[in-house]
Each structure stands twice: as C-alpha cells, then as structure tokens.
Simulated scan of single mutants.
Amino acid sequence: MRKLFVCAFAFLCLTANVSAQTAKDIRKERQEIRKASKSELNEKATKTARKDAKKLKKEGWITVPGALPLEKQLDKSYMMQMEYDEDMYPKYLMGEAMSIGENYDAAKMQALELAKQNLAGQIQTEVTALIENSVANEQLANEDATSVTQSIMGAKNLISQSIGRTIIVMECYRVKTNKNKEVLVRIAYNGAMAKAAAKRAIQDELKSKSDDLQKKLDQLLGW
C-alpha cells in the first residue's frame, strides 16, 4: 500500500513536472499505477481526497448549493487521472484554472476558458511525450520528430479551438474580502478526443510540410 501511495502521489504531481521527465520514465510510472488493483486505488484516492478537501476548506473554498461535496469532486478527479489505455496514454486529460469576478457566473466562464487553455497545454505535453517515445523506439527519425514537435508547440491555440465538450469534475469558490467571487474549476477531456484535437491542429501546422510525414505521424500515433 505504501508503494501504491508513492505512485499515486507522483502522478498527481505529474502535470507540474512532466516536461522534465523522459517519455520512458512517464510510461514506467504509469504502468506501475495501472498494475494496482481497483480497490486499492479507490481506497487511496478517497484518503487523499479527504485530506486535500480539508486543506481547501481551511483556505475558504466551498461548493455551490446542490453540488457534490469537495471530497467527492476530488475523488472523482483523482480516479479519472489514474486511468490509462493500453498505450499508457491517459483516458482523460485535465485542465484547471481560477478566475475572480464580481459575478459568480462570469468568473466561472472565464475560469473555464483558462482551464481549456491549460488543457490544450496538457495535450501538447502528452503528444510530445508520444513523439519522444517513438524516437526512443526508432520509429521516427530525429529530424522528423523535431519538425512534428515544433508544430505541436506552435499549435496550442488551434488545439484549444479544436477541443469539444469537456466535463467539469471540480467546481468551487470562495468570497474575497471585497466580496468578489474567486472560482476554481477542473475540467476533464476524453483522451481519444484530445488526440483527435491535436491531430487536427498538427495537420493544420504541417500543411506546408510533406504528406509522408503526416502519414508517419498518423501511423505512429494510431490516428
């Protein structure tokens, strides 16, 4: 159980330092999490969610009437973050953001837009890791990988525009001293749809490059 907790905690920090890890390290870490039984993951996620919810409440965060308690929202978020497909690609990608406004609904809408930008950044990171992995496995030449990576990094806005319907897995707020509302949201997006959004954006960026490179990319990433 101790080993499982270390793996789970490492994953929750992944979005902050994923760029500093190699694709091989990320894949190994995710394989360890995936090996854990569902019951163990449920137990540990719930314990972690309770602890984090307690901290948020101390900071003044509350939920709107009728919404799930913070513990349940966090628990759902953590469990979704621990799901991967056979290629160790996340089944769900997460985006998070905060925004402040006089009106709750306006602050929430702004937070959702910022979260979508954050989500686009997560998609960039995940697809870049897939490209790095293909180079490590000698499936793609370094020069081709560099070209694709540059296209990915330049396509954040296009990826954001390609993102469809997201799932709000966490929503809470706190009242500032000036009575303004600070809203925190976390959104989830289906991993397969995220790759499709990245594909559309990358294809747009690669229009001026060879069709052969696009075909290689489609084949490598299962597009």
Rank of each mutant, 00 (worst) to 15 (best):
K3W: 07
K3I: 10
K3H: 15
F9S: 13
F9D: 11
A10S: 10
A10C: 10
F11K: 08
L12H: 10
L12N: 14
T15V: 08
N17E: 11
N17F: 13
N17W: 10
V18H: 10
S19M: 10
S19G: 06
K24E: 15
K28N: 13
E29T: 08
E29F: 07
R30E: 11
R30Y: 08
E32M: 09
S37M: 05
L41P: 05
L41Q: 14
N42E: 12
E43R: 10
K47P: 06
T48D: 03
R50W: 12
R50P: 01
D52N: 13
A53Q: 03
K54F: 09
K55G: 11
L56C: 01
I62Y: 02
V64H: 09
G66D: 00
G66V: 02
L70V: 00
E71C: 06
K72W: 04
K72C: 06
L74Y: 00
D75S: 10
D75L: 04
S77C: 14
S77A: 13
Y78A: 12
Y78D: 10
M79V: 11
M79T: 12
M80P: 07
Q81S: 14
M82A: 13
E83W: 12
D87C: 08
P90Y: 03
M94H: 14
M94V: 15
E96W: 07
S99Y: 01
I100W: 05
E102L: 07
E102M: 07
Y104K: 05
D105Q: 13
K108E: 15
M109N: 09
L112S: 04
K116P: 04
K116L: 03
Q117R: 09
Q117P: 05
Q117I: 06
N118H: 15
G121K: 11
Q122L: 05
Q122V: 09
I123P: 00
Q124N: 15
T125F: 06
A129G: 09
A129V: 12
E132M: 07
N133G: 14
S134D: 14
S134Q: 13
V135P: 00
E138I: 08
T149M: 08
T149V: 15
Q150G: 15
Q150A: 14
Q161H: 09
Q161L: 05
Q161P: 00
I163H: 02
I163N: 01
G164M: 13
G164I: 11
G164H: 09
R165A: 15
R165P: 07
I167N: 11
I168D: 05
I168V: 12
V169P: 00
M170K: 12
M170L: 15
M170P: 07
M170D: 09
M170W: 06
E171F: 03
C172W: 00
C172P: 01
Y173Q: 02
R174F: 06
R174N: 04
K176W: 02
K176T: 11
N180V: 05
K181M: 12
V183F: 01
L184A: 07
L184P: 04
A188V: 04
Y189L: 05
Y189V: 10
A192P: 06
M193R: 11
M193N: 14
M193G: 08
A194T: 05
A194H: 01
K195Y: 04
K195S: 01
A196F: 02
A196Y: 02
K199M: 06
Q203D: 15
Q203K: 06
K207N: 13
S208E: 14
S210V: 03
L213M: 01
D218P: 00
L220A: 04
W223H: 06
W223I: 06
